[in-house]
Design a protein around this nucleic acid. Structure first.
Lengths: 261, 261
DNA sequence: CAGTGGTCTAGACCACACT
DNA sequence: GTGTGGTCTAGACCACTGC
């Protein structure tokens, strides 16, 4: 960590040209990479606090300000959470106020919690082999074992979301319908505590579609009811895809909210 | 700008309790507020450069680091753009690489520019009086003059987006169908140069709907085709709503893309 | 070359939480 | 009070742009 020779030992930025540009990487970016490694390796677990800024500065032999800037960026990406006077903590999905960070469906009237918590109903949960498109989304090979889950979320007693989701079989060994049904809380929180998989970011593709007969029955809607199709790929650290989710949202009394900035 | 008495002269943070908490506001937040004022007042116009960090530090009698942190936040919010070696510039919608910052519809295959630029077709443009819901969205009174525009966007020759938008009549005096048709570029860029209105952020509510007969004709789809309804309220500086837009997106070959993080 | 933003440091002090 | 993150400063040096 010698700042007189700031070479790129943690190569995160992809060079545009081949063999050109020594790919200068600032110190704080390298520190960021090191902290990221500790997060991935599980040295600091979700909900736990990481060492203080001074302590990390000592460990990495840099100034507090440099550690600070690294942590700033990780906190901006919601990987860490700073709490003044207490410390810096590994972000987790098991917190009340960020529980629905990835769920953008909100009631047309009132705020998010006006309807109380969603009722979750596991419809199906089985192991099978990845089809071509599922394998592609999860960076697996066709035929690799995957776990498929189907569930319905209801708000105020009305079925509103039908979700099919696929998980790579290996990291999620031992996940069963019972395990899912018994757990009360965000699914991603269960993934953290039981399987050490923390979802960090996701991409969603949204379309308008019509339901097939099975979907009509589960959501209690007619054939002509337009629904929101939300296809999500969620990623852990390292941009590793860990979940494919296809959701059907009923937007009679709810809407998908998105803030552009 | 005396940092030994950091009182809240630029009250941005809303206090939770009444008459409690002296609402401490850090220096860099106050600087941020001052820069924001200069942006609103038009002292620095979109595309222009603002004074250098050192110059601003001198003007506000603070250190460069403090100005830096203020600019950092404004740049994070896309109000300013930093360019190393050149200066800091007021963000604008008239730039190639951020032209579609607020348009999240992308083709299913290929990237954003694979289809070439969108063809814009102004269908209608007239002045009328605000209905109750439009007035509410634009923070006007019912009956206030508004401008209504209807247009169709086509990609690769196929009509894909039908948009109705409402603008407050006062700031947009002189905006005509001809003016809109003649302008080739993002609509928000025209708003900047011609009317001094810069859109800073927006909220979108997304639903799945079916088109009425008029909409079917304009988008060339059948009655049963599900479409994405995207209702947007766009804001200038100060969280002032300046546009209500209701879009219908055809998602046969495109999808609304959203990155969650 | 000068001017700009970008990085890094060292130290002082403030605000907050816990004990 | 002690320890944590948060703010502010002053100065040095690096990287990029354009004259």
């Amino acid at each position: 960590m010698n700042n007189t020779s700031p070479s790129a030992d943690t190569a995160l930025a992809a060079p545009d040209n081949l063999a050109a540009t020594p790919a200068f990487s600032p110190l704080y970016q390298q520190i960021k990479g090191l902290i990221l490694q500790s997060l991935q390796s599980g040295e600091w677990k979700p909900g736990e606090s990481i060492p203080s800024e001074m302590e990390l500065a000592g460990r990495y032999r840099v100034s507090q300000g440099t550690v600070r800037k690294a942590i700033d960026e990780l906190a901006a990406g919601h990987l860490l959470v700073r709490r003044q006077g207490k410390g810096t903590f590994v972000a987790t999905h098991a917190e009340q106020h960020v529980q629905y960070r990835f769920l953008k469906l909100v009631p047309d009237t009132g705020n998010l919690d006006s309807e109380g918590p969603a009722q979750r109903q596991i419809v199906d949960c089985k192991r099978l082999r990845a089809t071509a498109d599922i394998a592609r989304a999860l960076a697996l090979r066709p035929g690799d074992p995957v776990l498929q889950v189907r569930r319905v979320l209801s708000f105020a007693g009305e079925p509103t979301i039908l979700e099919d989701l696929w998980l790579p079989g290996n990291p999620f060994k031992g996940l069963t319908a019972e395990r899912l049904s018994d757990y009360h809380g965000p699914m991603y929180a269960l993934f953290e505590t039981e399987f050490g998989v923390r979802m960090v970011r996701a991409d969603e593709k949204i379309r308008a579609v019509l339901p097939d007969t099975a979907q009509q029955a589960l959501l209690n809607v007619t054939a002509g009811t337009p629904l929101l199709s939300v296809e999500r790929v969620a990623y852990t650290y390292n941009d590793t895809p860990m979940e494919l989710r296809r959701g059907l949202y009923c937007t009679e009394k709810h809407h998908y909210h998105n803030a552009l900035s």
